[in-house]
């Protein structure tokens, strides 16, 4: 039963990684940049939800929606002010800017909300579900996290596969020049991608802090890096890859903590990543770019 418990908490943590990784991978797919500030958007989302629920006593669902709205706007503004002017700049300049934005968000949070950790109230107030006459206990937060991740995946798959804007997004991520020749507004499409990624980051922030309730201005950075790893693991640019990478990373991390060593768990995670990349440099579901002549 403990084994099953580990699997479930691994999947739950992995779901959070997957939701964050989706933002990384979609933005990378379309803007060909690593938005290292993505992790900090998670933190902002968690704070917005925290204040809505704890200070203003709004229902948790309203807190989540407010967090999504704020993060979506934050994502659009960051893209417009920090990344758009660098559209034609070398990728190194964009990368450094993204790191700068990450610190900017962390320091702003420090200023606004201080470094004192906040106890995040779980948005899922119900306790846990007991199965097999009490031998297996699964908290409702865990269930909600996994279900949310599945719902998001289904929505995104539908959006990119079936809708006009979703297809435009895929077209832009393949070839922006050609997309423009189709009459697609490339800038608006990039904005939309940042908006979706950041909105998802808000959900991830709330879910993460519902399971691991210590909220600080640096809360987003480690999950951000792990989710980035998950995105690379699954194949950066690939939406199913982000899901697979996130879930696997979560399960490996929990198993490493349980069976190897708590201190070494991150090292194990990254060791697995290195091995996967040695065998499959494009990631598990990544597409190796090839040109037809």
């Amino acid at each position: 039963m403990t084994f099953l418990n580990f699997v479930i908490s691994g999947l739950s943590l992995g779901s959070v990684y997957a939701i964050i990784a989706l933002g990384y991978t979609m933005v990378y797919g379309i803007a060909k940049m690593l938005n290292f500030a993505h992790g900090d958007v998670i933190m902002v989302g968690a704070y917005i939800c925290f204040y809505s629920v704890s200070r203003f006593h709004l229902p948790p669902i309203v807190g989540v929606i407010l967090a999504m709205i704020v993060c979506t706007m934050l994502g659009i503004i960051v893209e417009r002010l920090a990344y758009k002017p660098l559209r034609r700049a070398p990728s190194l300049a964009v990368l450094i800017t993204a790191i700068g934005v990450s610190y900017f968000l962390q320091n702003s949070a420090l200023l606004l909300w201080t470094s004192n950790p906040k106890m995040f109230p779980s948005v899922v107030t119900k306790g846990s579900l007991k199965l097999f006459s009490g031998q297996l206990s699964v908290s409702y937060v865990t269930i909600v996290t996994i279900v949310t991740c599945i719902v998001i995946m289904i929505c995104l798959t539908w959006f990119t596969g079936r809708t006009r804007m979703g297809k435009a997004m895929r077209a832009c991520s393949e070839d922006k020049g050609a997309a423009q020749l189709m009459g697609i507004n490339v800038n608006a499409t990039i904005s939309l991608t940042f908006a979706i990624g950041s909105g998802l980051a808000a959900i991830a922030g709330v879910l993460l802090c519902s399971s691991y309730p210590t909220l600080m201005p640096t809360t987003g950075s480690m999950p951000g890096i792990k989710a980035f790893t998950a995105a690379v693991f699954g194949g950066i640019g690939s939406i199913p890859g982000a899901l697979l990478g996130g879930l696997m990373l979560g399960v490996i991390e929990i198993f490493a903590k349980a069976y190897i060593s708590t201190q070494l768990s991150d090292a194990v995670v990254f060791a697995v990543l290195i091995i996967v990349l040695l065998v499959k440099p494009a990631g598990l579901l990544g597409i190796e770019m090839q040109e037809k002549v």
Binding site: R164, M182, G183, I184
Partner: peptide, 24 residues
């Protein structure tokens, strides 16, 4: 414009490519 080097969307289906042509 039919661009130089074709520049079709390789990871989209043939039909989706045509639909992109009618995007506007």
């Amino acid at each position: 414009q039919v661009p130089e080097g074709r520049r079709i969307f390789l990871h989209m289906t043939v039909k989706e490519n045509l639909e992109m042509g009618a995007f506007t």
